[in-house]
Design a protein around this nucleic acid. Sequence first.
DNA 1: TCAAAAGTGTTACGTGTACACCCATGG
DNA 2: CCATGGGTGTACACGTAACACTTTTGA
Lengths: 231, 231
Amino acid sequence: MGVSVVILALDGTNRADARPTLRIPLVRRIRQPFLGDWALPGSRLRQGISLEAAASDALLSTTGLDARYLEQLYTFGDPGRSSSGLPMVSIAYWALIDADEAQGVHEARNVQWFPLNALPSIAFDHRRIIDYALDRIRTKIGYTDIAARLVGETFTLSQLRRVYEAILDRTLDPPNFRRSILASGMIKPTGEVLARGRHRPAALYRYAAPGAPLSSPSKRHDGRRHDERHA
Amino acid sequence: MGVSVVILALDGTNRADARPTLRIPLVRRIRQPFLGDWALPGSRLRQGISLEAAASDALLSTTGLDARYLEQLYTFGDPGRSSSGLPMVSIAYWALIDADEAQGVHEARNVQWFPLNALPSIAFDHRRIIDYALDRIRTKIGYTDIAARLVGETFTLSQLRRVYEAILDRTLDPPNFRRSILASGMIKPTGEVLARGRHRPAALYRYAAPGAPLSSPSKRHDGRRHDERHA
DNA sequence: TCAAAAGTGTTACGTGTACACCCATGG
DNA sequence: CCATGGGTGTACACGTAACACTTTTGA
């Protein structure tokens, strides 16, 4: 009866010139089953602690950081094993953190970081959970402002684009990215610019309403009126 | 530590002339908290029973039926209340059944059926769970063959369309529905027709591969070749 | 012959994507 | 003056929705 957390760490959001990368911390199993394999960080449930708080605990003790985003994924039950007459239940969360926050990266005991394209032998069915988490964030970044948690107060469009590119693991067309993100209404220009090299300075933006609105329902409705005159 | 189930019952799939309706069974609370309100059917977790089996149990004892479709939704934890030193955890599932299977509708103790547009006062946060389940099925019917579980072995396109309309709660354009469902490759014609009134008989279809494939990657690719002459 | 559902064809429009091109800057 | 990323314009493929139209039946 506990929680497991897929911790997706975006590394390199401070260095504004290159694409950040996604990495993930895993814990080496020190007992059977799956001894020696790598498992998701987790924590036991305790009285008075919410599920989400338990996930945050696991995150904090593994990385020393707080989540920029935390969301429940799925619950796994194993009817066989038990320690209390009940099935063994594990609730999986996924979290997004900004790895640049950590300086001395808090290399906890038995914890090691892996890039997503070079994962080791994974214990239990945790590999499926990781893939599920990746699906989720990649879908969700398309229609939410998760990325807001990973950029600074203000940012250029290429900084933001590189965050998207890291999460989606592919390059995005800068002109098209600009248009689609601006059309979503999620961000608005600050009016200031940022000079960062021997080229034209980039306009700075900020998220319109941090954590919420994407586009108002009325706006969305307007966007769908392409008939009415046919009547 | 138990499961709750949002049971979505499609009623009227046999009567081929009218649109079926979605209804939902709820259980009246006979103790505090929320005494007198209506809650989702549920069941306790027991040793040796999987989460999904527990959900099936709740479904069977409430409706007397087996699920045509069953899927986990979300897990809720309440850090306060407890009976075992652990937080109280409830795993929500949603199920789809064919209400027409039940003749003497098994009116179990304290169970009552409600149409979705006239729900009573709901206990706990079960209202949110119901809405979440509705979102899920409406999204999922767009890219899976859930509907296959709700029509007979063979069916006409208008029978299938009415199932979609009931779940989506809106009318669909028959010509467009025909094209999109056929293009998906999920169903194929049987070659037979069904005469059902003073109008042209409808062709009968069946699901291509019950429960699985939507459309093979190669097939889907073929289906998208309607250009090439522009080159 | 007529109402009604089955089924076909066509058009308008939005969206995603590729890519040509101009702009502004620092070296 | 030129390489570089910032930023604009545009064209096309494709999917979706609206709707006019033809077909086939039973009454």
